[in-house]
Every structure is written in C-alpha cells, then in structure tokens.
C-alpha cells in the first residue's frame, strides 16, 4: 500500500469513508447535534449535482471551440449547442414541467431514444450471428441455444401456439430462466459484489486514489 503523495487526500478519504461505512452497521456519531454521516452524504449529493453542471459546462466549451475553430463536424456541434441552450434556458426559467419542455421531451427526446433502442434490435441480432460464426465452441453454442430457446418460449408462434410443442417450449423457457439462469446470475451478482467491496475498500484505505495523487 502506498502512502506517498497526497497524504492529506488519503487521510480525508479514509476518515470520510470509515464514518459513512460504519453508519451501515452502527449509529453514526453526532457533532454538536449534527449527524456527521448524514451531513457527508448530503454534501456528496450536492457535489455530484454540481459536478454534473461542471460536466455540462465542459460539454458546452468543447463544442463551442469546435464551432469557433470550424473543425470537422462543427455544424453538428452548433446543433448540439442550440438544443442544449434552448432546453437549459427554458428549464432553468420555467422548470421541467413547463409545456414546451414536455413537447421537446415527447416529440424529440423520446422518439430518438426509442429509435436508438429499436436500432439495438438489429444490432443485437447481427452481433449474435457474428458471434456464432466467429467463435465456434461449447460456450457460444450454449449462449446462442439459450437465447433461441428463451425467445421461442416467450414469443407467440405464427402457427400452433396452443400445440404441445409450444407448451413444452414455454415450460423449458421457464426452467432455464428460473433455475439455470438464476444460478448463474446469483454467482455473477455475488462476484460483482465481492469485486465492488474490494475496490471500495481499496479507495477508502488509500491504495487506489481515483481523486489523484
């Protein structure tokens, strides 16, 4: 474990991290009647919100510079800036429930978002075919077979939806989804939780310093 560099940062991270973490298991300490853990969490929420604004300023600056320098694709940046300014000015002055904001959301943001998700259908199907054609081993066969079984067991059939075969496929799908997949998913979730715990502890103990040395 390294203790060089930003000792102040590592110390603050350790103290703050320990106070917030212990609050999950014990009653958090009070300082002058103030719940320190709650105070730190509220500050973190405010900082995250302010950081988002810094990110928006950065986004604006990057695209503003692109328009100014007229680099490749600058008209797209100009469109981005226009829509960003319209939305944020209207939103800041009139609030998110303003009628024009709802129109922007319903007729511009929602169709593009849904369109991008729709695009995913073709992209996923194509990726599935590429996967099985490029990698021919047991695991890719298991992956694709499971996907096909779940799709066939879940979808209405054009012919013979009430046939024995359709019922069998539906039962098979239920068995795969509720037993086999749950077993794998539980292992993955536990693995992710163990990994997250390790990474979090490394940050609190100062072994990893994503905030910089």
């Amino acid at each position: 474990m390294r203790f060089r560099g930003n000792v102040f940062g590592a110390s603050v991270a350790f103290i703050v991290g320990v106070i917030v973490l212990l609050g999950y298991f014990f009653t958090s300490p009070l300082l002058g009647g103030v719940d320190i853990r709650q105070l730190l969490i509220q500050w973190a929420a405010i900082i995250a919100a302010a950081a988002l604004f810094l990110g928006l300023i950065n986004l604006f600056t990057v695209h503003w510079n692109k328009v100014n320098d007229q680099t490749q694709g600058w008209p797209y940046s100009a469109v981005l800036i226009f829509f960003f300014l319209v939305t944020i000015v209207l939103g800041v002055i009139f609030g998110p429930d303003f009628e024009v904001m709802n129109l922007l959301f319903n007729y511009i943001q929602l169709p593009i978002e849904a369109g991008l998700i729709a695009l995913l259908a073709i992209t996923l199907a194509y990726a599935g075919f590429r996967f099985i054609s490029h990698r021919k081993d047991v695991f890719s066969v298991v992956f694709v077979s499971t996907a096909l079984l779940v799709l066939m067991g879940n979808s209405p059939w054009l012919l013979g939806s009430d046939s024995t075969l359709a019922a069998l496929m539906a039962n098979l799908r239920a068995w795969i989804v509720q037993v086999w997949s749950v077993a794998g998913a539980r292992g993955i979730i536990l693995g992710v939780a163990l990994g997250a715990t390790t990474t979090g502890l490394r940050v609190i103990l100062g072994a990893d310093r994503p905030y910089g040395d």
Partner: peptide
C-alpha cells in the same frame, strides 16, 4: 479543488461497500 472530489469519491466508495454487503452479499 480536490477536496470535494475526495469527499464524493470516498462517500461513493463507502456506500458501494455498505450497499454490496447489506444489499447483495
């Protein structure tokens, strides 16, 4: 301007550890 980032990162790390233990593990 590092102090706010340190607080944000350490609160997030502690919340992730606490959440992973009490909410998942």
């Amino acid at each position: 301007g590092s102090l706010p980032i340190i607080i944000l990162v350490s609160v997030a790390a502690a919340s992730i550890v606490g959440g992973a233990i009490t909410g998942t593990l």
